[in-house]
Computed example of a mutant assay.
Amino acid sequence: MAVGASGFIGTRFCRRMQQNPTLKFSIIDKASSNAFPELCKIADVRNLDTLRSTIEENSIIVNLAAEHRDDVRPLSLYDDVNVGGAKNICVVAREKNVNTIVFTSSVAVYGFAPVGTDESGTINPFNDYGRTKYEAEQVFRSWQAEAPETRTLIVIRPTVVFGEQNRGNVYNLLKQISTGRFLMIGHGNNRKSMAYVENITAFIEYALTNFKPGAHTYNYIDKPDFTMNVLLSTVNRILGKSEKIKFRMPFWLGFGIGKIFDLIAAITGKRFAVSSIRIKKFCSNTVFGTSIEKLDFKAPVPISEALERTVRHEFIESHGNENVFYTE
């Protein structure tokens, strides 16, 4: 049962599952799946009764449901969906004899973490998203600990996920580069861990059948990590543009401009693409380690190829009016 699988990662995961005849799947989401409407059952993780009517006996649950945008209002939605949803899923899992849950959490649980932070890193979220993701992890851990010899929990903490048809932060960055509107803030030597959607769905598929009972936690990152300078020059090369960076705005100036937008947003209630937290995130090192490299899992698509596939799909090729996913 793929909960919250009508979205970006979920749709790619279900496409992958279609290719595996040994694994039957269905989608549970509050919105119907555009790609797989015939396999979708409508339910909201905040509503226990709808989950009871859709989760099947003895199934495996992959929980992709989340409230995750930077601008969620009211803030209580983070708790209602991420934590309350986890509690409801565990209630139904107990009732339906579910023994395996895969939960997609986030590296946001670490906050502004030291470079190379792995699964043993200090939990220090800086926002409600990271906080509630970690609290949801604890809910699932409590469920697993009730029957440690028979229940399996796999917690996957992805870094920022990108890929074709996504309209999140990475897409916005790539679009700015492609249109010539990108402005480098800071020195550009800061590195960014990223994850390609096809690779993370491959790891979710791997997790369904390759772990024994217990609680397992993995960061998901596709290596190597790009610096912002390398990312910019690589995308420009794919687009056939000059790889030279012509102008840089000092961090202090960019951060100050972000603060001005924060103030305007607070006064007017409007949402802006520019904010101080986004400037800070952009200029920070966001580099994580992962113990996945100790497993026999191999990502199907190298990160350099994944970036090229995405840039070509979105900014060079034509794909008509295909469905896209708006996430951050």
Rank of each mutant, 00 (worst) to 15 (best):
V83Y: 03
S284E: 09
K294H: 08
L173W: 06
E293P: 04
N323Y: 04
V83C: 03
S59P: 02
I27H: 08
A43L: 06
Y196V: 02
G84H: 04
T327F: 08
R16N: 12
V81N: 12
T104L: 14
I154F: 01
E314T: 14
C40H: 09
T50Y: 07
K281G: 08
T117C: 14
S105W: 00
I279M: 14
R131K: 15
M1S: 11
W252M: 15
T217Q: 08
T286L: 15
E149H: 13
C283A: 10
Y206R: 06
D44W: 06
Y196G: 00
N210A: 05
S318W: 06
V115P: 09
Y110I: 15
K87R: 13
I55P: 02
I156V: 14
I156K: 01
D80C: 11
F182P: 05
F247G: 06
T227P: 07
I292M: 00
I89A: 04
E57N: 13
R248L: 00
L232K: 05
A207Y: 01
D118Y: 08
S318E: 14
P213A: 05
V109Y: 00
I204C: 03
R73S: 08
E328G: 13
T22H: 04
S276D: 11
E243D: 04
E56C: 10
F272G: 04
L64S: 00
I61W: 02
T234Y: 02
A113Y: 03
E308C: 03
N124L: 07
I101L: 01
G240T: 15
L23N: 07
D80P: 06
T54M: 07
T234N: 05
L153Q: 10
R94S: 08
N189R: 15
N219Y: 07
